[in-house]
Design a protein around this nucleic acid. Structure first.
Lengths: 356, 356
DNA sequence: AAAGTCAAAGAGACCGGTCTCTTTTTGCTT
DNA sequence: AAGCAAAAAGAGACCGGTCTCTTTGACTTT
């Protein structure tokens, strides 16, 4: 019966210390890289650690230091290219600054989000980045912020919360698109969003719980009103939560006798589905219908015609959120910041003058 | 000077016990939900915990129990739709089974991957899911597997490793496509992959370190050889690591006088770029060039023409990996399993007979 | 040579839970 | 009412690090 190799999972500083013939405290100094140790002892401890295949237990370290080197991220849906790209921005910054990332998907569900935050706080993350599903009840966000661990809101977040926030200038983007549509003679302009209301109907921007989308709709309605267009609220469609839902909504909308001549899709998943429905119904873009989508997804440049989009600095959004969080973790305790990144309209060929 | 509200971050079982007038052990029994406690005491402790706003410290719990309730995931690039969808499968299973997920991006870099695994083991994850960048040096994987914490390989993994693996039947898919191309009269068939070799040239499948891709190329070359096509190795292009690289490679390839009549793109990012280059060079799909891409990305159905793709069960891949891991965590210690999920060729309109 | 300084190493408490072992209390038997 | 098993509660070690406080000893200083 041969000796099994040293079980790496249970070698502790005490074991290393014994092997090296020094005290636990000294071994810990070498292994943890703090305090002062003589070269001679350092070598002995290092050698002992190597021969025993010592693997530090980060959990134990976290418990005494109070820092876990971890940041928690709660997003709506990692499958959405928007979030996966933002996530890339976050993880890149995290790696550069020595943090690791715990990811939880809320599925855009408020309860799941609450439980996610509770779990992350229990795991003692050093800080949080959250893309809140519902801004109406933000108690859990306030509580998280009060727990002493920094919190940064990503892409969403309301003016009333005194919490660090990183968003894009959605409102301006929506205003610009709307103005352009109106200048091209469009009067029936539809806005499609995944956000939903209890009765799946839209009445006013306050119905919308997702800050970024609410700001866009506000911009849209504002410009319409200033241009003298009435009751444009009726042209806002909510509840495009899945491609299937979007398909149904878009089909009904585009089959109607008073169908819109222009559509604004609130994200690329919706934009893609509208594009598909147009093709199915034999509507030609842009002569029959003008289309603009939020989020410059890769496919938008390759369709026939390519789609005009609002390019959001998605990677930069994640990057900025993570940087802001790391700053807080390094002790910056200035007032809550609000970072607003610029968007850009990428003109392609899906927009034209309104049909006569 | 008013009393500040209880600092939630530092309320411990001992504090709760004191407030409830019981011993620390008893309070811990109530709070931890183990052992036997009288109803009366349970209520008292629960009330005390609530009034102090007690938040358990998962770190401390993990340290004694040895389980952290966490699984570590290492992927090449979360920005790639393939990984973000697989990730969705993983996180869904994790949530259902009460685990949280730590995500690290390797950027397809072997050193980053090693350090990621070390970090995750140090953080005492209960298990690991890794999509290894390089299979040639898999020592760190073997070591991780030996550390006693279960490891599941995702999408990649070689036959020689005795580790749980979840992959798609890439080889069959590649064989089918190749056969179809040959049947349609194609003789110059190119294969484009992001995998790279030191000198950026391809000689044999053993040059390829990514299992899934190697298996596809093996299938491709095998069918070609059986059909009597010679030196098809020359038609395998490596190093399409970014869209920019892909653009250069595809442009050179398609401008050549002996350009291919059919192209297999190893992932949807490459497929998209090839599509763009065709358009730029004025090549018509499928009359000038037939195109098939791996991964049924959303855009592939919406281009003109829509692109024939290999649909991989990506979500299912992540789901299966996570389920396998959870089984292991629940004590299943049977031999290493190899799960192979079926792929499916989705015929669209980007494939035709070879031009004369 | 005695006093003072400072680097190097050791001893042991501590973080916040879990869990074993022991003691006390309760309820039931005869 | 005594005896006994089982339930309930308490005491304190333990997980694996960090860190403060103390001790040791080498090296100046005059």
């Amino acid at each position: 019966m041969d000796q099994s190799p040293p079980r790496s999972s249970s070698v502790t500083v005490a074991d290393v210390a014994r092997k090296a013939g020094v005290s636990k405290a000294t071994a810990a100094r070498v292994l943890g890289g703090y305090g002062t140790v003589s070269d001679h002892v350092r070598d002995a401890v290092t050698a002992a650690a190597r021969s025993l295949n010592y693997q530090p237990n980060e959990l134990a370290r976290s418990m005494t230091t109070g820092r876990s080197g971890t940041i928690g991220v709660v997003v709506g849906d990692i499958e959405n290219p928007f979030f996966s790209l933002a996530m890339r921005g976050i993880t890149d910054v995290a790696r550069q600054t020595g943090f690791t990332v715990i990811l939880i998907n809320s599925g855009e569900d408020a309860d799941a989000e609450k439980s996610a935050i509770r779990t992350l706080l229990a795991k003692r993350v050093d800080g949080l980045i959250v893309s809140p599903a519902m801004e109406s009840d933000a108690d859990h966000l306030r509580e998280a912020a009060r727990s002493g661990r920094p919190l940064v809101l990503l892409d969403r977040g309301s003016e009333t919360l005194d919490i660090d926030t990183v968003i894009a200038d959605d409102r301006h983007a929506a205003e610009n698109i709307t103005r352009r549509f109106i200048a091209l003679g469009h009067r029936r302009i539809a806005y499609l969003t995944a956000c939903d209301t209890p009765d799946h109907r839209f009445r006013a921007p306050t119905d919308i719980n997702t800050g970024s989308v609410r700001r866009r709709i506000e911009g849209f309605l504002d410009v319409c009103q200033k241009a003298g267009l009435e009751r444009m609220e009726d042209w806002v469609h909510v509840g495009a939560v899945t491609p299937e839902h979007t398909y149904r909504i878009a089909t009904v909308m585009l089959k109607s006798s008073r169908r819109p001549t222009a559509v604004i899709a609130s994200d690329s998943v919706i934009g893609l589905e509208v594009f598909k429905v147009c093709r199915e119904l034999g509507l030609t873009i842009p002569t029959d219908l003008s289309l603009v989508s939020f989020h410059d997804a890769d496919w938008t440049s390759v369709t026939t015609p390519p789609v005009t989009v609002v390019r959001q600095p998605v990677y930069g959004l994640g990057e900025a959120a993570a940087k802001l969080l790391v700053e807080r973790l390094n002790g910056n305790s200035a007032e809550a910041t609000r970072v607003v990144l610029k968007t850009e309209i990428v003109e392609r060929a899906s927009v034209a003058t309104a049909p006569a």
